[in-house]
Every structure is written in C-alpha cells, then in structure tokens.
C-alpha cells in the first residue's frame, strides 16, 4: 500500500505510523463527563467500508495526515493534511 502525502508525494506504507480513527481529532472538553472521554478513547464506529483515519508521516515530512479509504478494498480516496484542516 502507498499513501500520497500532500507534501512528499507517493510513499511506501512503511514510512507512516498508523494511529487510528479521525475521531481522535474531536477531543472532548477538559471538563466533559467521563463517559465522553471513555467514548473518545475506546469506542469505535469501526466501519466496514469507507473510513477516515490518522497516519503520521514519520519518515517524511512529520505531518499528521487524515486518510479517507475503504477498509474492505484498501482503496485510498483522499489524503489531507490535518494541520491545513485545523487552520480553517
């Protein structure tokens, strides 16, 4: 599998560290109830099909990427810079 990093181009899967679902981007507020934190840290929609998850370009530009892909076919639809989305 290859990911097309917006900064570095097509790169081998081994350059990236996989962290998990992009739910991680929606962090609960510090004073949110424990159940919100539990849900955030542990529970997953875990879709069979389209998903969006976070990959770190460890051996490249050191950017966090949000990758839209299909978990059944391994097809990759989009790779976005998390920093760019955050800046919006």
């Amino acid at each position: 599998m290859r990911l097309k990093c917006p900064l570095c181009g097509d790169r081998d899967r081994r350059e990236f560290y996989y962290s998990g679902t992009d739910d991680y981007l929606n962090r609960p507020a510090a004073d949110a109830p424990l159940s919100a934190w539990d849900d955030h840290l542990h529970n997953r929609t875990n879709p069979a099909g389209l998903t969006r998850d976070l990959w770190y370009h460890e051996q490249g530009c050191a950017q966090w990427l949000a990758v839209t892909r299909n978990t059944i076919t391994h097809e990759i639809m989009a790779v976005d810079l998390v920093a760019k989305e955050r800046a919006k």
């Binding site: 081998d12 998850d53 978990t71 059944i72 076919t73 391994h74």
Partner: peptide, 13 residues
C-alpha cells in the same frame, strides 16, 4: 498489519 481493515488479505511490508 497495524491498520484497520476488513480485507481478508494483508499487505507486503
């Protein structure tokens, strides 16, 4: 393979 997947086949690395 370290990433979420439902494909009953893996990757080369």
């Amino acid at each position: 393979d370290f990433y979420a997947s439902y494909a009953a086949r893996g990757n080369l690395p």
